[in-house]
């Protein structure tokens, strides 16, 4: 005899990639990195053991934010920058839902910056996928808060003057409990990151380097081109030394609190000098150091899980408090509430 929960389990297991593909046409530009993100999410969600109807995709505005229309789940396409706040209201009122926020560097790092940092701070159990292409795509090519200094765009014909945000550092600094980075051209790695984000209880933030073929093509070539990839990409693995290079012969060493690259082929360097990655380290110093490496041309760009720690979630605590107050005072009686305070009777 199978129990009800077993039947449910079976149903969940039967979900496939196809279950998440809607009938309507996907309308991103041919060759856009967003297609890869969509495909990896559609591949991973069936594996999370969650009923299909419990998934909700929420977004703001921008190319990335069309995402909910392309997922055959419940979806909410919000207004510019507000995805995290919309998702927060949904999650706090319906904690059993699995909520996936699709957003971009303009949507979440610029107009939605405030909602992002507060969602991180409160550790709301959301999964935020940041499609970072370092450009405003849907408005056709203006620089974004993650555009590199000096980048020439439609609104920076003489080069971007701003200093860019480091989204990973911002997330860690704001208190996010799961912070990772991946690349559109690394499907397997992306699947792993999405899977881990989905499994994490608390705010999960995944920055995805995503190529915009039209307005910022080749932005991440040094990380995706097979000739340069291995020398520029540091794939973080929990409890493993930070090694990179085709032959895994380069490592990251900490000297005077600064990361430097050491060549393990040289006699004076040993594997024991290489930093060991610990994504569960409560102290965010090392994760913060890794978060700043992408901007340094002398250092490789890390991808993988930067930080994964446990902290109680806002949505969980809200409902815990509801239960506690209920236990303490009993279920509210409306007539009593209306009649509370000083009352008098007129006959």
């Amino acid at each position: 005899m199978t129990t009800k929960s077993e039947i449910k389990q079976k149903e969940i297991k039967q979900l496939t990639y196809q279950d998440f593909v809607p009938e309507n046409e996907v309308k991103w530009c041919p060759g856009c990195g967003d297609y890869s993100i969509l495909a990896q999410v559609q591949r991973v969600l069936p594996e999370l053991g969650i009923e299909k109807e419990k998934f909700v995709c929420v977004s703001g505005i921008g190319c990335s934010s069309r995402f909910p229309y392309y997922m055959n789940t419940y979806g909410f396409h919000g207004i510019h920058g507000r995805a995290a706040a919309i998702a927060t209201g949904l999650k706090v009122s319906r904690p059993e839902l699995s909520i996936w926020v699709a957003t971009g560097d303009g949507d979440m790092m610029s107009i939605g910056g405030n909602h992002f940092i507060h969602a991180c701070r409160k550790n709301i159990d959301l999964n935020i996928l940041l499609f970072n292409n370092r450009i405003y795509g849907l408005t056709k090519g203006q620089y974004s808060p993650t555009s590199r200094k000096g980048m020439v765009t439609k609104t920076s014909p003489y080069g971007v003057v701003d200093h860019p945000f480091k989204p990973i550092a911002l997330a860690i600094g704001s208190g996010a409990t799961f912070v990772a980075r991946t690349i559109d051209r690394e499907p397997k790695h992306m699947q792993e990151m999405i899977k881990k984000a989905g499994a994490h209880k608390g705010l999960s933030f995944v920055e995805i380097y995503q190529n915009c073929v039209i307005f910022n093509d080749g932005e991440f070539n040094h990380l995706t081109d097979k000739n340069t990839r291995d020398d520029n990409l540091l794939v973080l693995e929990h409890k493993k030394p930070m090694l990179f290079g085709k032959e895994k012969d380069k490592g990251i060493k900490l000297v005077d609190f600064k990361p430097i690259v050491i060549d393990l082929n040289k006699k004076e360097n040993s594997i024991d000098d290489v930093l060991i990655h610990d994504e569960t380290d409560e102290i965010p110093m090392r994760a913060m150091m890794l978060a700043c490496m992408a901007e340094d041309s002398n250092l490789p760009t890390p991808i993988g899980v930067f930080r994964r720690v446990y902290k109680s979630t806002y949505d969980g605590d809200v409902h815990l408090q509801l239960q506690e107050v209920n236990k303490k005072y009993g279920k509210g009686d409306l007539q009593k509430l209306l009649t509370s305070g000083n009352t008098w009777e007129i006959k």
Binding site: A85, R94, H118, L322, N326, K328, L337
Partner: peptide, 27 residues
Amino acid sequence: YKNYGVITFQAEDEIAGITSAIGAAFG
């Protein structure tokens, strides 16, 4: 009024106040 099933969310700003409510209405 938590024991009346009321959830209050003191948001980070006015916009989050209403958009969180919209999210909850969707829910």
